[in-house]
Design a protein around this nucleic acid. Structure first.
Lengths: 157, 157
DNA sequence: CTACTTGCAAATCATTTGCAGATGA
DNA sequence: TCATCTGCAAATGATTTGCAAGTAG
């Protein structure tokens, strides 16, 4: 799983579609119609989503040719393996976000409207590394969720 | 699985059992045999655990009088409501830890042995609050997981 | 061709719920 | 007493899997 240490924007040599094809070939897998549709839909905009939302969007995209639920789950797993998506867990359900071509970040989570706000903080990584060093712990990654109430919801209340 | 921690304990006026009874009474609920058994078991040692592990431990504790699975889940929920336990989500399953009489902390998670190491960092809270202020976000709580490899597992490899 | 894929239906897995009988205040 | 509990079995909801038919290379 490749990581991004870049800051505002990351330039990538291959499109997500190309990168995924590359991954599939390397693993003796096939570039099928449904896998193509799924990557296309997933990378059509930057957003957090779960399997159900993706399926819903796919229904709109393609009226007749439906992609089945199992295939969506299977392909999401492959996209994570390929390093194109990052998976997290929110309230017992899997949530996905782009991991290819986007800098690492953490989240503010509004418990009122369920919105996820991304932010990047160099300082957090520094503190994390310092703590890890104190424990002789080798850091692979981290995940920080700050739960609370966003501006809009605070105004509304 | 998890080990003991270097975090100082907090002095509390009531034992977990007493605190839970208080909570139950305040909510018109009853202090039953099974609720008593569950709190006792849960607070017999400081550890991270899931519902299954708790049930397993309860089986040992009481050979004949078994506490059923639904009751364990129901009581765990009440212990969280009562502020005695804190629940988190690890790989799609609920993980619980003491929240009464223990200071707030975050976790280093060893992906090899699944151990959770607790640590407290004032600095993280400061960075968190600064970022939140920048986004006009009202912080309720946060959760930081640092995934990696612990000393023991690194030595072993 | 033929090994990899898909969709379907059925299976999991953790957790929750409806309900009749049991029990604590 | 009698409202709150409990255990049972069945329901849930998200995700996974076995398998026969479909398809990419």
């Amino acid at each position: 799983m490749p990581e991004n240490f870049a800051l505002p924007k990351v330039r990538v040599p291959l499109s997500p579609e190309e990168r995924f094809s590359q991954f599939l070939q390397k693993h003796g897998k096939r570039v099928t119609q449904q896998r193509r549709l799924i990557v296309e839909q997933v990378f059509s905009h930057h957003d957090h989503f779960d399997a159900d939302e993706l399926i819903e969007h796919l229904q709109e995209l393609i009226q007749r040719r439906e992609v089945s639920r199992p295939t969506v789950y299977r392909t999401l797993g492959e996209l994570v393996e390929a390093g194109l998506l990052r998976k997290m867990n929110l309230g017992g359900r899997g949530i996905y976000e782009h991991d290819y071509g986007y800098p690492s970040h953490d989240h503010l989570y509004c418990q009122v409207c369920n919105k996820l706000i991304e932010f990047h903080s160099e300082a957090i990584e520094q503190v994390r590394d310092r703590v890890a060093r104190q424990h002789n712990f080798h850091v692979v990654s981290h995940r920080l969720f700050v739960t609370g109430i966003c501006v809009e919801c605070r105004r509304r209340e």
